[in-house]
């Protein structure tokens, strides 16, 4: 019906923190999600996903909000549309602002997701919101140690070869254990691939 057209997106603006990420920023309201996705009963390899959002001049953005959505270590989503369900309390959703870390990084403590289906590479969906972005952006994070699976992933291989690297997080051994690092470049030669999902 023509009467039910999509409500337009508007920017999250600079003042989302006390509403959407209150706990992280120290405001007196609970938060539905934050940077720690794992609990004691979560199965899988603990990883920390670390990155920054860089503007067109390469400067870190201090007022972005990043959300991630991922399957558990067995590749199952905690959602009614995934009939397999998850066997733990793992939800798979995280949300962080980039304004509390001195380097404006987001740092999600999670597990490395399993492949959702045969032929897919493990991945995390990332949504980006910020002042100066009128409509949110979808991107994906793949993993550098999954080269073989990445080479046949249907979404990744639909991206021009010279831009695929913008979606691959580099695995490193760091202070937090296994770290995956990825910066989101809004513009420039390394402009991150965003999807019209």
């Amino acid at each position: 019906m023509a009467d039910f057209k999509q409500t337009p997106s508007q920017t999250v603006g600079p003042y989302f923190a006390y509403g959407l990420t209150a706990k992280q920023y120290g405001y007196p309201q609970t938060s539905i999600a934050e940077g720690v996705l794992v609990g004691d009963d979560t199965e899988g390899e603990r990883i920390t996903l670390i990155g920054r959002v860089l503007d067109g001049e390469g400067k870190p953005v201090s007022d972005a909000m990043v959300e991630i959505w991922q399957a558990d270590a067995q590749g199952r989503y905690t959602h009614p549309a995934d009939p397999r369900g998850s066997n733990s309390t793992f939800v798979g959703f995280g949300r962080l602002g980039t304004g509390t870390d001195p380097q404006n990084r987001f740092m999600f403590q999670t597990v490395k997701p399993g492949a959702v289906a045969e032929g897919q590479a493990p991945h995390i969906t990332l949504i980006l919101f910020m002042r100066g972005l009128l409509t949110h952006l979808y991107t994906r994070v793949y993993f550098s140690d999954e080269a073989e699976a990445n080479a046949s992933d249907p979404v990744l291989t639909a991206v021009p070869a010279d831009r695929r690297g913008t979606l691959i997080a580099a695995r490193e051994a760091g202070a937090n254990g296994v770290e995956y690092r990825i910066d989101i470049h809004m513009q420039g030669p390394d402009e991150t691939v965003f999807f019209d999902a």
Partner: peptide, 30 residues
């Protein structure tokens, strides 16, 4: 949208790449 100045350095310049939604996209936090 240049009239909103913050978009000039914060909006991507390359076209979005079409993605056929799969289970990853058809699910979400509840």
């Amino acid at each position: 949208h240049p009239d909103y100045k913050s978009t000039v350095l914060r909006g991507p310049t390359k076209p979005l790449i079409p993605l056929q939604p799969g289970l990853t996209e058809m699910t979400g936090p509840v």
